[in-house]
Computed example of a mutant assay.
Amino acid sequence: MSIDRRTVLMTPLLLTTGAAQAAQPQKPQEGQQAWTISLPDGLPAVRCWLYMPPGSTKPGKTWPLAIFLHGSGERGENLDAVKVHGPPKHIANGRHYPFIVCSPQLEAGARWDPRRLHAMLQVLLKQLPADADRVYATGLSLGGHGVWDWAAAFPNDLAAIAPVCGFGNPAAACNARQVPARAYHGDADTVVPIAQQQATVNALKACGGTVEFIIYPGEGHGSWNPAYEDPALVPWLMAQKRR
């Protein structure tokens, strides 16, 4: 089943690949900035928004790191598109988070590859004052699917996940049983029906995983709106540490 969705991108083209590379500062600065992550083993470089919370550039302290994976509508060359939904949108609107946030962008037509995400994380842990025991992954739609796949393929990467209106592979869910999950979905979603994510949640529970499934009655595919406004989400993430 295709999980592509149509998204109206409200912001103009800001950065091309070359511009994002040129915009990268030598060292991360506080706030949200365009960033390019070079990967090993011939993997394509990753363009992203990197958010450093207040005080995070001072030496002597490590910070939790959250990775946000966008949906299918935000793929392409326009890095501003990544700020249409989720944490990078809220950061652009003035919200502060108590953790570093990396919001990478997929190329047009691409899907989230756990191997590439694993490699990206290893580079980030070397470049940033990030705590390897407090790495969180969240994402919506195609990004929620990517979060489930990443947790199943590399469970030791993550302290917790928060997939929104996505779905995983129930047959592989037990690989992620050590990773606590807080999943979200609207029960009126016709793009990614709730039954798909429910199957992954059920499989994870059956093998002893820790998972909470928050369901929004009457909500369609836009369940990321209430999910990223959930006042319990950030405290829940901050309470998790890699097992």
Rank of each mutant, 00 (worst) to 15 (best):
C174I: 10
G186N: 09
V201E: 07
N169R: 13
P170F: 10
D187Q: 07
V191Y: 00
V179I: 09
A173F: 07
A173M: 11
N202E: 15
N169Y: 08
A206H: 04
G166E: 02
Q178P: 12
C165W: 02
V192I: 06
V192L: 00
A203M: 11
A183P: 05
Q196R: 14
P170H: 14
A172I: 04
G166N: 02
P193E: 04
A195Q: 07
I194E: 01
P170A: 12
A195I: 04
A172D: 10
P170Y: 08
G186Y: 05
A176E: 10
A171I: 06
Y184K: 12
I194N: 00
V191L: 06
R177W: 05
V192M: 00
D187P: 03
A195P: 01
A173N: 08
C165I: 02
A195E: 15
Q196A: 01
P193I: 00
A176Y: 06
H185V: 07
R177Y: 12
R182F: 14
A183K: 03
G186Q: 05
R177D: 03
A181F: 01
Q196S: 09
V191G: 03
N169F: 08
A183Y: 13
T200P: 02
K205D: 13
I194G: 00
Q197M: 14
F167H: 03
A176T: 10
A195H: 02
D189Q: 03
A195C: 04
